[in-house]
Nucleic acid binder design. Structure first.
Lengths: 243, 243
DNA sequence: CGAGGTCTTGAAGACGATCAACAAACGTGG
DNA sequence: CCACGTTTGTTGATCGTCTTCAAGACCTCG
């Protein structure tokens, strides 16, 4: 496996702490294979006991939960560099599936290799643990916006989060980034109806805060969007500190 | 520090994996002191860089997020045995505060001690990592109920979760457990208005599913409550597996 | 060209929020 | 011991946000 596979993961980790050469080698070494998934394909199935965890290297993926009435709720969106189901290494059983929202390239890491990392590389272990802790912080931010923000504010917060995360790993600059998510998928992230999401998006456009077309988002007024969203990127832990 | 301090933590960990005697000794050893907090007191302040993490040994606590309009959202509820802000050992900076909902007894663990654990005890490290992964799974369950469940179903799910977690550590039996949370605090957990929570609680009572008075919940019809909530305890990882 | 996905718009209705008031329980201090 | 303020639980009425249902426009792709 080449170092290109872990490029975005490295960027993500190096935002938060130093990664030694030895650790980089180890990260490459533990990858057993890479796979491509077409849009809509299931990357990780629900209710199975997985033997591998998945690192997303290209594309957009989501954690999907299906509820009784046929609706679904997305609990997390993953972008390149995200170790999407690292937590399954510990949980052993999945409470949700992971679905490719766009064409995805995924690197597989066997749980036995992760086990070996935790035995031999304490610092690297803490970095991986950190990445699951950041996932949890993102979950909490979603709970807060779902519980106490208006639909417009929640939508704005989601877009701010997506921009901040893309920018952090170099996939967004000058307020602009590729984001190939449909409004239906977006409504499943927000827990809102498709119609309501559509109208709130129009509201954001009417306010002149952003342009979203051709699967590209261009934020026109970051300050106002951030204010509307009550967005503070602190929870994403973008600071280089020994961990 | 005595072993009684980590009694509930041990029960919680031992539900999921074996804990060796050496690990038990280490868990006791890393506690530097215990503290009492009165109801409403701030156990961990927002926006500070903490040097310790907190293990809850008695009482009920919550992670609180305050939003612009003065409302607050609770993103997690902690019961005895929960290592409440273990994630702060890695995140270094807090995106939320922890508040005592009732009188709480808390054990403090210095981050340097946690660091030492990760250097010397890989298996214990995985167990601690697991407990933060379960926290994240609970967050996801909240996102799902907030997004795609009715208020009645969401409320039912919350009660199911609280019962399951209390029962797991021996603080609930026969459908009955102490739960000293006010309806106002409950509404902050669910992201609903106090009035609406009150009416949905009455609905649950009218359906004969539970009795909640004198800070005690007695579930009268677990099957129906669970069905109404679409509750599946799998996400709480109650299974003893080597991790 | 037709099929299917995506985005958009309109209208109706439901669910939950807000405002307001009151009752009950509790602890405190006079 | 009662008076008092405070917290908690309850009820009614009104309002607004968001959902649902339905239909049409636009696009891409076979």
């Amino acid at each position: 496996m080449s170092t290109a596979t872990i490029e975005y993961l490295l960027r993500s980790l190096q935002l938060r702490d130093k990664v030694s050469d030895e650790e980089k080698v180890e990260l490459v070494r533990i990858i057993s294979q890479t796979k491509i998934f077409e849009p809509g394909a299931s990357i990780v199935q629900e209710d199975v006991t997985p033997t591998h965890s998945c690192l997303l290297t290209e594309g957009l993926a989501a954690r999907c939960h299906y509820v009784v009435n046929g609706n679904r709720q997305i609990s997390a969106v993953h972008i390149p560099g995200d170790f999407m189901d690292l937590h399954n290494f510990l949980l052993k059983r999945l409470d949700h599936g992971i679905v490719a929202l766009t064409r995805c390239k995924v690197a597989l890491v066997a749980h036995e290799n992760l086990h070996a990392v935790t035995e031999k590389y304490p610092h690297l272990t803490r970095l991986l643990w950190l990445s699951t802790a950041i996932d949890a912080a993102i979950h909490r931010a979603w709970v807060v916006t779902m519980g106490r923000h208006s639909a417009l504010s929640q939508l704005s917060h989601f877009i701010c989060e997506m921009y901040a995360r893309h920018e952090a790993i170099g996939l967004a600059t000058n307020g602009k980034f590729d984001f190939a998510m449909s409004q239906a998928q977006l409504s499943d992230c927000l827990g809102l109806s498709l119609v309501h999401v559509n109208r709130n998006l129009q509201e954001l456009r009417k306010l002149g805060l952003l342009v979203w077309r051709d699967q590209t988002i261009e934020i026109k007024n970051w300050e106002k969007l951030q204010e509307l969203a009550d967005f503070d990127p602190a929870y994403l832990s973008f600071m280089k500190v020994p961990r």
